[in-house]
Computed example of a mutant assay.
Amino acid sequence: MVEISGTQPFQTTAQSGTTSAPSESARAVVSSDFETFLKMMTVQVQNQDPLNPIDSSDYATQLATFSSVEQQVLTNELLTSMKTLLSGGVEAPGEVLRGYSDWVGMEALVEEPVQFSGQPIDVRADFAPNANSAMLVVRDSEGVELERFVLNENQSHVSWSGRDASGQMHPQGVYSFEVESFFLDELIDTSPAAVYSNINEVWAESGTAKLRLSDGTEMDANNVIGLREPVV
């Protein structure tokens, strides 16, 4: 990977996304199946042999069997509701973390200040709509501007080496990035630049999935705006 400093060009990198599928309600399935069951029973009655009709006890057995299944589904829903109430309305950790277990080891994209520990920081710097030029601004934990770099229009991902124009390494600490977008040399937008950081840990806290990044930063999983496989 080519690192950049105050006088070096940025490096473009790639990203990937993830998808998820919605779940289906058990109650809706039972309701649909019950309607189908009634239709089948009606057809069965209409087409039975009048000389050898189906015994009424058979109908009772079929109804009892289906009713038992329906009651089991309703009981499960009731137990789930009671579990939630007894836990103070907070979901169990296993439920909270469902879908997040595969995040460990991935790179999260967040619009947050990050800890610089001497390793290059991968930044996604998007131009504002209608902008024809932009600059990446680097600030320290106090919000003081340290550096700014001209961005190429075809570059959306860049890597900040942590070195200034003289080649000296900036001290370790928290840094933030923002993109200033221009149209005909006039500033039209300033917005946070998102950064990539490895996810080291996922846990549940007060019904919310929490993340710990490789730089030690902790945040809600809801603050993640993108994921990708680690870039080698």
Rank of each mutant, 00 (worst) to 15 (best):
V138Y: 03
G105A: 06
I121D: 08
M106P: 06
G94L: 05
G105E: 04
G94Q: 11
N130A: 14
V123Q: 09
F116R: 11
P113M: 09
A125M: 02
S133G: 14
S101Q: 12
V104H: 05
Q119S: 12
G118Y: 05
G99K: 03
Y100W: 10
D140T: 00
G118H: 04
E111T: 07
L136M: 10
A128L: 04
P93E: 01
D140P: 00
S101C: 02
P93T: 00
G118S: 07
V110T: 12
V96S: 04
M106S: 11
L109K: 10
M106A: 13
S101F: 06
E107V: 02
R124N: 12
Q115P: 11
V96E: 04
R98S: 11
Q115T: 15
D102W: 07
F116H: 11
Q115N: 15
V110L: 13
V138A: 05
A131I: 08
D140R: 00
G89L: 07
E112I: 08
V96W: 02
F127P: 15
P129R: 02
V110W: 12
V110D: 08
A128N: 06
Q119R: 12
N132G: 13
D122G: 02
V90E: 15
A134W: 01
G99N: 01
L97V: 01
F127L: 14
E111F: 07
M106W: 12
M106D: 12
G89D: 09
P120T: 02
P93V: 00
V137H: 11
V137R: 10
S87P: 05
G94P: 06
L86F: 15
L86K: 13
E95N: 01
S87I: 01
